[in-house]
Design a protein around this nucleic acid. Structure first.
Lengths: 200, 200
DNA sequence: TGGTTCTGACTAAGCGCTTGCTTATCGCGG
DNA sequence: CCGCGATAAGCAAGCGCTTAGTCAGAACCA
């Protein structure tokens, strides 16, 4: 069977993905060479093409997985409670912590969209729309229930997402706060943004 | 003298800068070729080097001007009133409108820092620190005066800037809101974030 | 005519990706 | 248990092309 060979191949494949994540995040897609990635994975340039169709395909794999993880995170937050306030807290905490702890991957997810092929971009944009829609529905529900108060729910939900996404840009591993501390403070900020009339 | 010839040269120079802004913003620094820039400016590839030392130098010129403009904007907002609330509103409105209307330039300013040479990056980081410091002082003043209320003024001021910067990422010219509408809503959000106990 | 602006032709270096080959591991007939 | 053909992983070398940047001279304007 392939129970012995597969793990080796899977390891090489994921090592290339991990190397690409590091390279793309620090130097950008176009600033990264296939030789950079191969070297970081401890392989020859040609080995990249044994496991991946192209450099762009590597970006697509990373982007797809990152977006799906984010969508899952948001959906879990919404499903965690029937109360919009608790849903908001769960979503913001998960979203923020994820963008801080996984800032390398999140940078690629949010800032390298233009490097995707048109077909791949289409697919990714679809997932992004789903993420935005989930948050918009959450805010709308809160407004309907009278626990949120905002003059423009659509822009408010966009701002909530925006705040979390931008954490990936400014977060540093050697910074002053842990991802959890940022998550906590961003929950406080989020409640204020939606005008939640609830004790903290 | 060169009073007559200079305008022509200045025009070519600024046409190259304008072309570089468009290209860098849409395709990124590394995704843009010197031929892209020259062609967009209606010139041959070699003409770029008559007016600029290198492609990186072009990026530096754009980044420097953009950062200085932003710092100026923040300082004008702070100087507009002795009242922290009015200062905050002026800064957020100016900052947000600038990042929406000038989103092409702002994308380069905020997302192409890694492509700068170490020396140039140092200089730019200095301006960024000055911008952050101005906003932090504004928030600290508001807290001292008792008109703002927040558990972490440092993270709050970072979040305020973060929110404005990210507008450059998601704003579209054909989107649902004008820069001014976004500025208005972001003023409302900012007041809530700092816990300003003031009527809208 | 003199000086500046701008160009076409060029180069060295670096790019994504392919090729030809070696090596390691596999199931399987004897 | 052994040896054989098959499959896949990996590498050194390099192909065809594009890149940033150069330079000698044409074109232009005072």
């Amino acid at each position: 069977m392939s129970q012995v060979t597969e793990p080796v191949a899977q390891d090489a494949r994921s090592r290339l993905v991990a190397a690409a994540v590091e390279s793309f995040a620090s130097k950008g897609f176009h600033g990264t060479t296939t030789r950079d990635i191969a070297a970081a994975a401890g392989m020859s340039p040609a080995a990249l093409y044994v496991h991946h169709r192209s450099k762009e395909d590597l970006l697509y794999v990373i982007s797809k997985a990152g977006h799906e993880r984010t969508l899952q995170l948001v959906e879990e937050g919404v499903a965690s409670s029937p109360d919009p306030v608790q849903q908001l807290l769960a979503v913001i905490r998960g979203f923020t912590v994820h963008h801080a702890r996984g800032h390398t991957g999140a940078r690629i997810v949010n800032y390298e969209l233009a490097a995707l092929s048109p077909a791949h971009l289409d697919e990714i944009v679809g997932i992004r729309r789903a993420i935005e829609q989930r948050v918009r529905r959450l805010v709308d529900r809160g407004v309907e229930d009278g626990v949120f108060e905002t003059s423009d729910p659509r822009m408010t939900s966009l701002a909530l997402l925006s705040l979390g996404i931008d954490v990936a840009r400014w977060y540093r591993d050697d910074g002053a706060w842990t991802p959890e501390q940022i998550g906590d403070h961003y929950c406080e900020i989020a409640l204020r943004i939606v005008g939640a009339s609830v004790t903290r």
